[in-house]
Nucleic acid binder design. Structure first.
Lengths: 246, 246
DNA sequence: CGTGGTCTTGACACGATTCAAGCCCCGTGG
DNA sequence: CCACGGGGCTTGAATCGTGTCAAGACCACG
């Protein structure tokens, strides 16, 4: 439970200044936000928010990775999303959390008390606009994941996940050829991947072994994957061959 | 391909006036919208939008039911959502459609050309605010569905779907006791349910038979279901016993 | 009365889970 | 320095749930 609270740097130099909920704000609006913000850190493994908690704050992820997940009474859990720097936590107008948020690595958040933030959303359109954009992007991501969960095989799920990791770590849209031969670190354990993909950890492990045996990937230790041919991986993921690899 | 276009009634008397994207608008703002809107109808089964289509419009569903879905190259398809009256189609800033939209019944839409609509979103905050609320609601719905797709058994999926239908047709939050003994019509075919639930139509059919054999439901024809004990159905759906049946 | 669409049911196959054992790596303490 | 322990990971064998393929029932409609 060691969490630090610190009053903080100027927003100007913030690493997520240009992508977070504040990205459209001008200098004036930024000042408003600066007045009500504070940073807070969590250690890897800590639960940041429990389902059902009172939500008195909203926040942006500044550094680290967190997960959104939901757990059934009997322990089955489904991860609903991964939160990376600049992603937003909480929802204006919502009083209690619907999902668990857990720090997957050490995490620091830029927090705002909910009520003042809501007031700001009303008065400064740029925040609301950016929040809308981000929400719609998340909605698209959730829907893509629904196809994966509902219809893809275990092998396709793993391949899809790997393309996701590649796109996230290399950043933005990439040409298939350009990124073949690269290695990426997996940000999640086998168990966490299983929860993300709607599988068991044993199935995840087996599919990694099979993809390796088939030459689609090679493993450099259990948490680092080399992808000799990205286009091959892409097609293993069950994606349209011609689809833009957004 | 018989679709009608008609210039139309005043927004004042619109059946979705108080729930759609325009619900927060005042009289002035409504006038602005009225100037650029037009109605358009589709017959059951017609595809309203194909994935990849140019999206020159956005729209609200006025009457009828439509589905959002995504199909893989080999034909596997996953339904991503159901669109009911007042639900919104399209996204400001997006040029091409990511998903197929299909009329599940006869449907009429209230359409706006995208560019003028986007301009309006910028200038009239009430539209943007409402759009944000609606998007966040859809995001929550999508996430709940992810748990279903990733972790629930076929039986739980069917039971969950039935509770969804009950809640939608009886309207809003309901007390468990109050709605036991009611019958509801299923708005989808077995195949459409299968696509919604990530199952095959045979599995859907079998689970209906089993739930009937176990006394959880009874069938009045294949498209009408009677639920003698809603609390029982609710627990079959794998939901927390104490959770508010929102 | 025939036709096509929707739904049900059965037999079988297959993919994923479950249960179990054991490996590897790393940090801790004797 | 090495033994120990634990977490993360892999692998195997058996089981179970769902998909696949196929046949036939039901029903509305022409």
């Amino acid at each position: 439970m060691s969490l630090t609270s610190l009053k903080q740097d100027r927003c100007e130099s913030c690493p997520i200044r240009h992508r977070a909920v504040c990205s459209k704000c001008n200098a004036d609006e930024l000042l408003q936000l600066e007045k009500i913000k504070y940073y807070r850190s969590y250690e890897a493994g800590q639960t940041i928010i429990w389902r059902g908690d009172q939500m008195d704050i909203v926040a942006s992820v500044v550094t680290g990775t967190a997960t959104i997940s939901q757990t059934m009474e009997d322990g089955r859990t489904q991860m609903l999303g991964i939160l990376l720097p600049s992603d937003f936590i909480g929802r204006p107008g919502r009083e209690t959390a619907l999902y668990d948020i857990v720090a997957a690595s050490d995490v620091t958040l830029c927090c705002f008390r909910r009520l003042p933030f809501e007031a700001l959303v009303e008065t400064t359109p740029h925040i609301g606009q950016r929040l809308l954009e981000m929400s719609l992007d998340e909605l698209d991501a959730a829907r893509d994941w629904m196809l994966l969960l509902g219809r893809k095989t275990a092998r396709e799920k793993i391949a899809s996940f790997l393309t996701l990791v590649v796109r996230r770590t290399t950043g933005a849209p990439v040409l298939p050829g350009a990124i073949s031969g690269q290695s990426v670190d997996l940000p999640l354990t086998r168990e966490a991947m299983a929860n993300y993909l709607g599988l068991t950890l044993e199935t995840v492990s087996r599919q990694f072994s099979k993809l390796k045996a088939d030459g689609v990937i090679s493993l450099e230790g259990s948490r680092r994957v080399k992808i000799p041919d990205f286009a091959r991986l892409w097609s293993e993921a069950g994606n349209d061959a011609e689809a833009e690899m957004s």
